[in-house]
């Protein structure tokens, strides 16, 4: 099997890996970098559990191959440990009860984060659209929407 050298930025740090060009980003994260916060639910881009940020956009990491990563910025849940906006979302997810089994949660949080990065005051429909690709089998979604709404309110509050 041929290996390629690929350079990209992972969670704010430059990285260089030698992997087969067809290796999935999901496997690069989970296996090469041991970042298991990114989950696999379906492996074919349907469930959203493996959502990460590619240059700030929410993408399914199971559908991205190593060869597509050169020069990109990839962010996972682990990369946002000290990020204020992510911390706010995380707190509100807990306060609103938006987490049950938690397997979809990292992906859900990254989709929400990507939305709030682009638009600090999204409408409920914007929120629903942003998260519609993230399946959750435990909750009824309502608490997730509430948690994101609550985060937008605090973000747009000038005192915050």
């Amino acid at each position: 099997m041929k290996f390629s050298t690929i350079k990209f930025e992972l969670n704010g740090k430059p990285v260089e890996i030698e992997v087969p060009p067809a290796m999935r980003l999901l496997d690069i994260l989970r296996e090469t970098f041991k970042l298991t916060g990114t989950k696999e639910g379906c492996g074919i881009g349907e469930c959203g559990a493996c959502t990460v940020l590619l240059n700030g956009q929410a993408v399914a990491s199971c559908l991205l191959l190593a060869g597509q990563l050169e020069g990109t910025k990839i962010t996972t849940i682990e990369g946002l440990v000290h990020d204020e906006r992510m911390n706010l979302l995380q707190r509100n997810f807990l306060e609103c009860g938006a987490v049950q089994c938690g397997f979809c949660t990292p992906g859900m949080l990254l989709s929400a984060y990507a939305l709030l990065q682009k638009d600090a005051r999204p409408t409920t429909d914007d929120i629903k659209n942003a998260i519609a690709g993230n399946l959750c089998r435990c909750t009824g979604y309502k608490q997730i929407i509430q948690a994101i709404q609550k985060s937008t309110e605090s973000l747009s509050d000038p005192d915050q």
Partner: peptide
């Protein structure tokens, strides 16, 4: 709030 919440929102839950 659930006591396993932090593990789950931080991606550290195994």
């Amino acid at each position: 709030s659930r006591i396993d919440g932090y593990d789950k929102v931080s991606g550290t839950a195994k």
